[in-house]
């Protein structure tokens, strides 16, 4: 496959997990828990994509996530792109044994950054929500990252490997 299509393959490998997140969200609706997965889906493809591809991938992931939610348009995309840029520069963290922790942390951070932006589009949420709902949501996102990253990561890695996008060498 042409190397420039790596981001598309990565997206294809990640999107089912977004859908799974939607399904889980539907199930968890009565508990008011937000199933936030885009952050954890970033880390594995980053090891296999060039910087510009990584940014494009993150943007598409973000746009796909936010298109059905009351988020200011572009907010999730830019947050994920920023995270992708940071992770890209610290790729050594992603290949060590602590990779799951890093992915979970990335998901937690993305959730904590994206979700409050909803208040820009959706009315201001009270202080109470900022003080304790955000930590709870973010912690849940982190937990999801920790639990799901081994599965999602290996799935993405397998698909990307098969499509011919092996892990890039570190300089």
């Amino acid at each position: 496959m042409t190397p420039s299509l790596g981001w598309l393959v990565a997206l294809a490998a990640s999107y089912p997990w977004l859908l799974a997140g939607d399904l889980l969200g539907d199930l968890l609706a009565p508990w008011h828990l937000l199933v936030f997965l885009p952050g954890l889906l970033l880390s594995t493809p980053l090891l296999r994509l060039r910087p510009w591809q990584a940014l494009l991938f993150a943007a598409c992931l973000g746009l796909a996530y936010e298109s059905r939610r009351p988020l200011p348009h572009g907010s999730a995309a830019f947050v994920l792109m920023a995270l992708a840029a940071v992770l890209q520069a610290n790729r050594h963290l992603l290949v060590r044994r602590r990779a799951h922790l890093v992915a979970a942390a990335a998901n937690l951070a993305a959730c904590a950054l994206v979700v409050p932006l909803a208040s820009l589009d959706h009315g201001v949420v009270g202080w109470g929500a900022w003080l304790w709902a955000l930590p709870v949501q973010a912690a849940f996102a982190g937990l999801l990252g920790l639990v799901l990253h081994p599965l999602a990561g290996s799935f993405q890695a397998a698909l990307l490997d098969r499509a011919g996008f092996p892990q890039l060498a570190e300089p």
């Binding site: 880390s43 594995t44 090891l47 790729r91 050594h92 992603l94 290949v95 060590r96 044994r97 602590r98 990779a99 799951h100 992915a103 990253h149 081994p150 990561g153 290996s154 993405q156 890695a157 490997d161 092996p166 892990q167 060498a169 570190e170 300089p171």
Partner: peptide, 13 residues
């Protein structure tokens, strides 16, 4: 898994 698949080629500062 992402961390173990592929050779680890990083140089750890």
């Amino acid at each position: 898994m992402s961390g173990t698949s592929g050779a680890s080629v990083e140089k750890i500062p």
